[in-house]
Design a protein around this nucleic acid. Structure first.
Length: 901
RNA sequence: GGGCGGGUAGCUCAGUUGGUUAGAGCAACUGGUUUACAUCCAGUAGGUCGCAGGUUCGAGUCCUGUCCCGCCCACCA
C-alpha cells in the first residue's frame, strides 16, 4: 500500500542508494546497439552548486534516462575541473590571512596546500549533484589533474608543438595585475567606465612654441611614449609628419609619424604611441620599428622607466598624479569626462593591463574543418542560431595565449638547458616525460590555461591517448559522444575548442580532412545550449546580489523531483529563464498528484496481475470495455507521439507540458471521475495500464517518485529505471485486443460529451446552484445526438451531480445553453430572474450574430471560395451551420420567455 | 559600430509550413468539496498579439520601416 502522504526526501535518498548498489548507472556495451554518450561539463572543484548546474544536469539526466529506456548503450561520464586561477586565488587568500604569499612558501608547498584544498572541498559539488538524482557512471569519474589526464594534456601540447601550432613569442597580452598572470582574450570582459580624456600638449622640437595636442585616457603611460602618430591624409598635421616632438614627461625627442590606423575624428586626430601598453600602438610600433618601453610592472605599479617621480606608484594613482603634473606645467589643455569600455579580468575583477610579455601561443588547428563540421550539420546546435556566433568567432579567430604565470595546473612540458639562452629553440626540450639528464635542464615555470585541458575533455575521459585505456573505456564504441549540454556563454571557451581539438588530435595533423574524417573525429553530434537562469526581475543570479536560491534548500523543501520538473517547466527552448519558486512548488504538486492518483487506484481491488504490460492487458474484458476507455487509450497513443516529437526536437518543457496535461486533465479530471461510476476489473486494468505508462513517460523527469510508485504498485521485479519504453506503435501492438478502428469517431463523441458537461456545469455555476443536487436538467437534441447522450447518461449525471437529465421535445422556458449535441436547459426551481435571463440570452445572441456575420462574409467572398483550400472552406461552412443551429435554439427560448407575461 | 534574441491576458510563457471564434500555468474573483489529493474540483473575468505600413481570399505568424528591453562581438586612444 502507498503511504498517505508524499514525502520526497527519504524516498529519494533510499532510491539513489539502491540504484548505486545495483550498478544501474554503469556503462553498458551491447555491440549491436547504438551507443549513447554524454560527457558532463565538469564543474569546478571550487564551485558550489547553483541553479545553472541544476538545469544543465537535469537535462542531461533526462536525456540519459530516455536513452536507457530506448535500450541504447548508455554512458554518462562525470568529472571535475581543477579550476586553475579560481583555486589558486582561494589558496592564496588563505595564505594572505597568515600574511604570506605563494612566493614565501615556494612552489612545492603551495601545490601541496592546493591539493589539500581540493581533497577537502573538491567532491562537494558532486555530492550535491547526486542529490538531484543524476545517473552518471561514477566508476568513470575523471579529474583534469588525474595522472593520466595530465599526460593527455601534455601529449596534446607536445603534439601541437611538433606540428607547429604552438609557439613562443613576445606579444602584447592581457595581464591581470592581481592574479599576476597573462589571460586569454576570452577571459577579458569589456565594461563601460566613466573615464577622463586628457588633452595634452606635445611641443614640436623643430618649431619651438608650436604644439601638437594629443588626447588620451591613459596619461600615466606617457613615459612609455615613443612617437606621436597622425593619419597620413590629415591636412591639419601634414607639415608635422617627419618632425619630432618633446615627450612631456621624461622629456625626450620622439618622431611624429603617419599611420592609416589613426582615426582622424577621434580626439584631436593625434595619437600617442606607447607600444608596450596598447594593442594598436603595438601594431603601429612594429610597422615603424619603434622601441617598446614598458613603464608598468606586473603588479600594476609603475616601474623605474617611469622616472623617479612616479616609480613604484599604482597605475591609477599615477594617472591622477600625471594629470596634476601636466596641469602644473601648463601642458594640459583640458580634461573631458568620457565614457569608454575597458577590459576587466573575469576572475579578479580589475582592469587588465595590456603588457608586452613572453608567452606560449596556440595557433588553432582545424579551424576550417571546425566550421564545416557545424555548417554541414555533422554537429547540430540547438537552438540553431548559436551557429552564427560560433562561425563568426572562428572567422575572426586569433592565436590563443595558453601560458599562465600560475602554479596550479598542468606545467608546460618545456625544458631549457641550464645557463643557456632561453630564446634560442636550440636550447629547448619539449616532451611529455622531460629530458633524461634532468639535472641539466630547468622546466618552464608556467602552467597551461585551464581551458587548454578542458578542450580535450571528451577525448581524455575516454582514455585518449593511451591505447590500452581507450580500449578499456570503449573509446571506439562511445566516441563521438551524442549530446553536449552546456551554456552559450562558453561556446568559445569550451565548445569550439573541443571541436578543433577532436578534429586534430584524432589524426596526424593532416592539412585537410574529408567529410567522413570530420564526422569520425567530432567530439559530439548535438550541442544543446541551455538558457541562463535569472531572477524574477531578469537579473543574472549572483552571490553579491543574493538573488540566487540555494538549490539544496529547494531540494529539501520540494524534493529533487519537484525541483527538476519545476526548473524544466520554466526553461523554454534556449531562452533565458526567469526563476520562480512557484514553478518548483508546482513541480512538487505534480508529484503529489501522481502519488494520490495511485492512492485512488489502490482503493480498488489489488488482486489483478500487474507484473507486466501483457498481464494487465490480459485483464481487460472486451465485453465491459466502454467508449471512455478506448478514447483515453487512444489519447494516450496520440500523446506519446506528440511527446516523442517534442523530445526529438529537444523541447523539454513542451514535452513535459504534454504529459502534464494528459495526466492532469485527461486522466485525473476526466477519466478518473467518469470511471468512478463503473469500477470493475476492466476499469481497474485500464487504470493500471495508464498509470504504468505514465510512470514510464514521467520517469526520466521525476525518477524518484516514479520508481517508488512502480514498486509500491507491484509493477514488476525490475527497476523502473531498467524498464524499456516502446513507442506508440509498439504499445498499439501490445493493445491489439482493443479495437482502435473507430477511435477517432469515439474520441469526438467523448469531446462532445465533455463540451456538454462543461456547458451544463457553467449553467449551474451561473445560477449559483453548484451546491444543489436536486437541480433538473433537460436537453433537446435530434435523435442521433440523443443516442449519444443516452450512451453517456450515467456519467453525465455523475459529473453534474444531478439525478435529472431528461429529454424534452420542445424548447423550454428555462435558462439554456447550446452545444453541438443540442440545447441544455436548467430548471432553476422557480428562482429564475426572467429579465436577467433574457438579457443574458440576448448578449449571447449578439455574440453569436457577430460570429455568424463574420463567417457569412467570408463565405460570400468569391476570392475566398476560389483560393482557399477545400478543408478550410468546409470548416467555415460547418461552423456557420453549427452557429446558426445554436442561434435558432436561443431564439426559440427567447421567444418562449417573451410569451411569459 | 556590427550581430543575435525578445516585446501576445496583471505575471511567466505556448502559438508548428499564414487557415475555423489567439491558448496554458500562476495571480484575481465566484461556488463547491462528491470513492485519491497538507488539498482538489467546477466556473467567471481578463488580450486592438510593441507601433506604422505592405503582401494575401485570409497575418500573432511573411516582408519593410520604427520604438523599447536584453545579450554577444569590435583596435575610437
Amino acid at each position: 500500500m502507498i503511504e498517505a502522504s508524499y514525502f520526497p526526501n527519504d524516498l529519494e535518498q533510499k532510491w539513489y542508494a539502491k540504484w548505486l548498489e545495483n550498478d544501474l548507472f554503469k556503462r553498458k556495451i551491447f555491440p549491436d546497439k547504438t551507443a549513447y554518450t554524454i560527457v558532463i561539463p565538469p564543474p569546478n572543484v571550487t564551485g558550489i552548486l547553483h541553479m545553472g548546474h541544476i538545469l544543465n544536469n537535469t537535462i542531461q539526466d533526462v536525456l540519459i534516462r530516455r536513452a536507457r529506456q530506448k535500450n541504447q548503450s548508455v554512458f554518462w561520464i562525470p568529472g571535475t575541473d581543477h579550476a586553475g586561477i579560481s583555486l589558486q586565488i582561494k589558496v592564496e587568500k588563505e595564505l594572505a590571512q597568515q600574511n604570506k604569499t605563494r612566493y614565501d612558501i615556494g612552489r612545492e608547498a603551495f601545490l601541496d596546500l592546493a591539493q589539500k584544498w581540493r581533497e577537502k572541498h573538491g567532491g562537494i559539488i558532486l555530492d550535491q549533484l547526486k542529490k538531484l538524482g543524476i545517473s552518471c557512471d561514477w566508476s568513470a569519474l575523471k579529474y583534469t589533474l588525474d595522472p593520466d589526464y595530465y599526460r593527455a594534456v601534455l601529449t596534446t601540447f607536445v603534439k601541437w608543438y611538433r606540428q607547429g601550432y604552438i609557439y613562443r613569442g613576445l606579444r602584447l597580452v592581457n595581464w591581470c595585475p592581481v592574479s599576476m598572470t597573462a589571460l586569454s582574450d576570452e577571459e577579458v570582459i569589456m565594461r563601460q567606465q566613466n573615464s577622463s580624456l586628457y588633452y595634452i600638449k606635445y611641443e614640436i622640437v623643430e618649431k619651438p612654441g608650436t604644439f601638437i595636442i594629443v588626447a588620451t585616457t591613459r596619461p600615466e603611460t606617457i613615459m612609455g611614449d615613443v612617437a606621436v602618430a597622425v593619419h597620413p591624409s590629415d591636412e591639419r598635421y601634414r607639415d608635422f609628419v617627419g618632425l619630432h616632438c618633446w615627450r612631456p614627461i621624461l622629456r625626450e625627442s620622439i618622431p611624429i609619424i603617419a599611420d592609416e590606423m589613426v582615426l582622424k575624428d577621434f580626439g584631436t586626430g593625434a595619437l600617442k604611441i606607447t607600444p608596450a601598453h596598447d594593442a594598436v600602438d603595438f601594431e603601429i610600433g612594429q610597422r615603424h620599428e619603434l622601441a617598446a618601453i614598458g613603464v608598468i610592472d606586473k603588479n600594476g605599479k609603475l616601474n623605474r622607466f617611469a622616472g623617479p617621480e612616479f616609480a613604484n606608484m599604482d597605475r591609477f594613482e599615477a594617472r591622477k598624479r600625471v594629470g596634476e603634473y601636466l596641469q602644473k606645467n601648463g601642458l594640459l589643455v583640458k580634461e573631458e569626462i568620457y565614457t569608454n569600455s575597458i577590459g576587466f579580468s573575469e576572475r579578479a575583477g580589475v582592469p587588465v593591463e595590456p603588457m608586452l610579455s613572453e608567452q606560449w601561443f596556440l595557433k588553432y588547428p582545424c579551424v576550417e574543418e571546425a566550421k564545416l563540421a557545424v555548417q554541414k550539420g555533422f554537429i547540430r546546435f540547438r537552438p540553431e542560431r548559436w551557429e552564427k556566433t560560433y562561425i563568426h568567432w572562428l572567422d575572426h579567430i586569433k592565436d590563443w595565449c595558453i601560458s599562465r604565470q600560475l602554479w596550479w595546473g598542468h606545467r608546460i612540458p618545456v625544458w631549457y638547458r641550464k645557463g643557456k639562452d632561453r630564446n634560442d629553440p636550440q636550447n629547448w626540450h619539449v616532451s611529455v616525460d622531460g629530458p633524461e639528464d634532468f639535472e641539466n635542464w630547468d622546466q618552464d615555470e608556467d602552467v597551461l590555461d585551464t581551458w587548454f585541458s578542458s578542450a580535450i575533455w571528451p577525448l581524455a575521459t575516454l582514455g585518449w591517448p593511451d591505447e590500452k585505456a581507450m580500449a578499456m573505456m570503449g573509446f571506439d564504441y562511445f566516441y563521438p559522444t551524442a549530446d553536449l549540454v552546456t551554456g552559450p556563454d562558453i561556446i568559445f571557451f569550451w565548445v569550439a575548442r573541443m571541436i578543433m581539438s577532436g578534429l586534430n588530435l584524432l589524426g596526424d595533423g593532416e592539412e585537410r580532412l574529408s567529410n567522413d574524417e570530420i564526422r569520425r573525429r567530432i567530439p559530439f553530434r548535438n550541442v544543446y545550449f541551455t538558457g541562463i537562469i535569472r531572477d524574477h526581475l531578469g537579473r543574472k543570479m549572483s552571490k553579491s546580489l543574493g538573488n540566487s536560491p540555494d538549490p539544496l534548500d529547494l531540494i529539501e523543501k520540494y524534493g529533487a523531483d519537484g525541483v527538476r520538473i519545476g526548473l524544466l517547466s520554466m526553461a523554454p527552448n534556449g531562452q533565458d529563464i526567469l526563476f520562480s519558486e512557484d514553478r518548483v512548488a508546482q513541480g512538487k504538486k505534480l508529484c503529489t498528484k501522481l502519488w494520490n492518483s495511485f492512492r485512488f487506484r489502490q482503493q480498488g481491488s489489488m488482486e489483478g496481475d500487474r507484473s507486466s504490460l501483457a498481464a494487465i492487458v490480459e485483464r481487460i474484458n472486451d465485453a465491459t470495455l466502454e467508449i471512455d476507455d478506448i478514447a483515453i487509450l487512444g489519447k494516450l497513443l496520440q500523446v506519446m507521439d506528440e511527446f516523442e516529437h517534442a523530445m526529438a526536437d529537444y523541447e523539454f518543457s513542451h514535452a513535459l507540458q504534454i504529459l502534464y496535461t494528459f495526466f492532469w486533465s485527461d486522466y485525473c479530471d476526466w477519466y478518473i471521475e467518469i470511471s468512478k461510476i463503473r469500477i470493475d476489473g476492466t476499469v481497474l486494468a485500464i487504470h493500471d495500464l495508464l498509470l504504468r505508462q505514465l510512470l514510464l513517460l514521467f520517469h526520466p523527469f521525476i525518477p524518484f517518485v516514479t520508481e517508488e510508485l512502480w514498486w509500491e504498485h507491484g509493477y514488476g521485479t525490475k527497476f523502473l529505471s531498467e524498464e524499456l519504453l516502446g513507442n506508440s506503435d509498439e504499445l498499439r501492438h501490445d493493445l491489439s485486443k482493443i479495437d482502435f478502428g473507430k477511435v477517432e469517431i469515439l474520441s469526438e463523441e467523448i469531446e462532445h460529451i465533455r463540451e456538454l458537461v462543461v456547458a451544463s456545469r457553467a449553467l449551474k455555476a451561473q445560477f449559483e446552484l453548484s451546491s444543489r443536487r436536486d437541480v433538473k436538467f433537460y436537453f433537446k437534441a435530434d435523435p442521433e445526438a440523443q443516442d449519444v447522450i443516452d450512451r453517456h447518461l450515467r456519467g453525465i449525471k455523475h459529473l453534474l451531480l444531478t439525478q435529472f437529465f431528461d429529454k424534452t421535445a420542445e424548447a423550454l422556458q428555462l435558462p439554456t445553453t447550446v452545444v453541438v449535441l443540442g440545447a441544455i436547459y436548467i430548471d432553476t426551481a422557480n428562482s429564475l430572474n426572467l429579465i436577467a435571463e433574457k438579457e443574458r440570452l440576448k448578449r449571447e445572441l449578439e455574440q453569436l450574430d457577430q460570429l455568424i456575420e463574420m463567417n457569412q462574409e467570408k463565405l460570400n467572398s468569391e476570392d475566398f471560395l476560389k483560393r482557399a483550400p477545400q478543408n478550410i472552406i468546409a470548416g467555415a461552412r460547418n461552423l456557420l451551420a453549427e452557429n446558426r443551429a445554436k442561434k435558432k435554439e436561443l431564439e426559440a427560448v427567447l421567444l418562449k420567455l417573451s410569451t411569459i407575461n
